[in-house]
Design a binder for these strands. Structure first.
Lengths: 341, 341
DNA sequence: CGCTGTCATGTTAGCGCTAACATCCTTTTT
DNA sequence: AAAAAGGATGTTAGCGCTAACATGACAGCG
């Protein structure tokens, strides 16, 4: 009757637990917990002994249990609209290296430019008790706003500036569009076509177009728009050049929504034997290395992508530690005057 | 005494819980749990009522608690050595889209080519009760092997083929190196320099060099090697071309470890006015779009990156469902004969 | 009509950890 | 020397959910 083989239910994995470590080390469970999570609250000698025991038993803390008990995880939810775009990759890198150094783990979600998908991701991520949430962009579904407004952890909206839910780090896309349009006018171009891809989804490209159009309107010039089915790739850029050459034969410049399209067009122009910018000027946006290595060098606008990620992460970390941080930060942009305009 | 206002401790967030939903819906907690996780085990009518209640209360399931209770999470740990490399990004994309469709969430870790960092990541990820683990590569520290061998969930090692811990999807890098070396010889090149970056870390580039060298040895030719401090970028490729031109003035071909380096060199050759392949032939590895859009088109080897990710994910999913899957799969590669060789 | 089987739902007991409070020393203060 | 403060460790009670077992209702059937 007193055999330890309980006749009843039992579960759990075979893994070593914290209390097994505690027993083996001759201390209580909470002391082991503190040795790992708050070393300064444990006597150095005791701690050394506990760590040795952990090593000996090959104990791996169950972070799920820890998160449940403490109602918080060291997860940071990061939601981006695309992984095909180098821009988001670099922002993620900036976030990742900064968070990782502080022991936070990124939970990456990809919406593919679908706001409902974003809502679904937010719901899942809230369920994981994340410490903070980062999204690319200020646009969300109403359901998503509802979820986020009831949430008590910090939220960082990145990439663009505007009415944010909480923290905001980004740049002014309308101003960037204006900047490039002014540059192209200054170089003497008058028939400027704006080419973007999936612009109802990549609405930041739309913001840049709005800035572009504002400047051209001011000069009494038309601002024709070509909206492609693809977001951005060398192929799509090459195809777009062909389309512009037939649909707007008098065009003297193309303002592309991103460097992938612009570089694709530029390389294609070379293959066609067109002079850039003599026959047609080409401008991009992002400042990817690619555009800076082709001949002629691409005129584009550089955004500080990796820095934006790092800054956003630093702000969030400071905020999580209780520091007061500015709610909005403009990281700016820089016109890279290449030889393609 | 019987007042419900307990004079004692209390915690927990203000969030709606599953048992609150159960009370509101007039069922037990487990029925709500089943309505969400095993709908077929609940009467359709009951389920509808429960879902309506969930909607009304704005209940968001606590996935941490669920994972603790069930000793498993729908996390897939994915460990890659770098996020700067388009290759890994595409593999991750393939993994992500496939896992996401089945409701799994990727936990991404970046080792920066450091095996100790990998061990640390594995330790953390095991603590999250992941359903499976994916690593890029077959090389691990002893400590890491120890952790993984005690683990009872599936492990997928990707990118290369060889002695794997569990499942393995990849390609034969030695064969790829041989393939390109043969191609360069066939095109009449004899003084072929192999250029890689951080090859002690990017050991797969080293495997390709081994194949390359094997072929050149067979012809009695030297196989000079240049190992750069940078993994791969257009800048580094351009700089590498300069170095080769001075250190190996008689070189007639450069076999680069990746397309970034190769394309950087190719574009730089254009700026220098060098004919490719007349003055010097250039070859890469990966088959990135970039190399296919420059003139001359880059000779390279294409690996099915996104497909590799999808396939690895599908295999793991099948394995998780109890299906028997092949433990090793060679996804092959393809020589893209461009105009740069 | 009682037996077995199936379906729908409920009860119980944790999963492994940590917050909150408690205890027991040792040190510092007045 | 008594009181207050601080340091190290322990006890208790969950965090919110689900596995395992239990129950009850009803159908089919010889």
């Amino acid at each position: 009757m007193s055999k330890s083989s309980s006749p009843r239910r039992r579960r759990g994995s075979a893994r070593t637990t914290l209390s097994q470590v505690a027993d083996a080390a001759g201390v209580s469970a909470i002391t082991v917990s503190r040795a790992l999570n708050a070393p300064e609250r444990v006597n150095a000698e005791t701690r050394r002994h506990i760590l040795a025991t952990i090593e000996r038993l090959g104990y791996v803390p169950n972070l799920v249990a820890g998160s449940l008990a403490s109602a918080s995880s060291r997860f940071i939810a990061v939601i981006v609209p695309s992984l095909s775009n180098a821009v988001f990759i670099e922002v993620i890198q900036g976030l990742q290296e900064t968070f990782e150094a502080e022991g936070y783990q990124i939970l990456l979600g990809n919406t593919d430019y679908d706001l409902d998908r974003e809502t679904q991701l937010v719901r899942t991520f809230l369920g994981w008790s994340c410490s903070a949430l980062v999204t690319a962009g200020l646009r969300h579904s109403d359901a998503c706003r509802g979820l986020l407004s009831q949430w008590d952890k910090p939220i960082m909206e990145m990439m663009e500036l505007g009415e944010a839910l909480d923290l905001n780090v980004g740049l002014d896309h309308v101003a960037a569009g204006r900047c490039m349009a002014r540059h192209l006018l200054q170089r003497g171009h008058r028939q400027i076509v704006y080419v973007g891809g999936r612009m109802s989804e990549d609405y930041r490209a739309g913001l840049r177009y709005a800035g572009h159009r504002e400047i051209l309107d001011g000069e009494g010039l038309a601002a024709p728009l070509l909206d492609l089915a693809h977001l951005g790739s060398l192929e799509a850029g090459a195809a777009a050049l062909d389309r512009v050459l037939t649909s707007h034969p008098r065009a003297d410049a193309i303002h592309f929504a991103n460097d992938d399209l612009a570089t694709g067009a530029l390389l294609h122009a070379q293959r066609l034997g067109l002079g850039v910018p003599k026959d047609i000027a080409i401008a991009g946006f992002n400042g990817l290395p690619l555009g800076q290595h082709v001949t002629p060098r691409l005129t584009t606008i550089r955004s500080p992508r990796q820095y934006m990620g790092q800054l956003a992460a630093k702000r969030l970390l400071a905020h999580l530690q209780g520091d007061v941080v500015a709610r909005r930060q403009d990281v700016g942009f820089e016109l890279l005057t290449g030889d393609s305009s």
